[in-house]
Amino acid sequence: MTKSKLLILGNSHSEALPRDPIDGYDLEIHWLKTKDNAKFGTMTLPEAREKAASLTANDTLVLMHLGALHNIYGLLNHDVPYGVLLDDGTRVGPEDAQIIPVSSIRAVFQNKFESDKVVPAIKEATRAQVVHVMPPPPKEEIPERFRNKGGDYHGRGIAEFGFAPADLRLALWRIEESALSSFLGKLGIMHYAAPAETLTATGFLAPDFYANDATHANAAFGKQLMDAIVRLSKSRAYI
């Protein structure tokens, strides 16, 4: 029996995925090198397009490229503190912070997605079914030791900014998830967020799935995510 191909074009988050053989699939995982000066990456965009073009309609292509804006905008405290209001009226973010309407933040994310060239290029190149997987949701507790890593940025250490409140980080992840789902839907790409079993009751990444940093999930998460990807591929639920 001919095996289907499962091509995963990922980023740092795809490093958590297992590389073990999967019954019925030819698995290939690459870290997309989307910038010329990127330190890491195993496949350039032209190579990825060529690879995507070689797939058939029975194959599955998983993209892990967009979805990290919640970290850019909300992992660290901003110099001008801000928060959002949840649907139930709960205020999240630093106390007394300026509240930004959710639709404005959503528009910022949408604007960034629309400037992306990678996802449309890959989608256009392939006949395979395409699923996009978002980075995992935030960690409720980020160990203090990560505050002092990474050196200075513009002369200021991470400790000087500090990590943003957990509820704001989760709210931003959810806004981005909603905006990304809408953006991908217009491109005919299925959006997948995270396996339910890896989350806490309130929607954070469960501590059992923390990698040894502030933003990534571990190999146990990767195993759950790979199982979910295979289930999606087999069910063709996204077709």
Binding site: I72, L76, H78, D79, V80, Y153, H154, F161
Partner: peptide, 8 residues
């Protein structure tokens, strides 16, 4: 703020 977050 955003540049620092991106770098991090």
């Amino acid at each position: 703020s955003l540049a620092a977050a991106r770098a991090f």
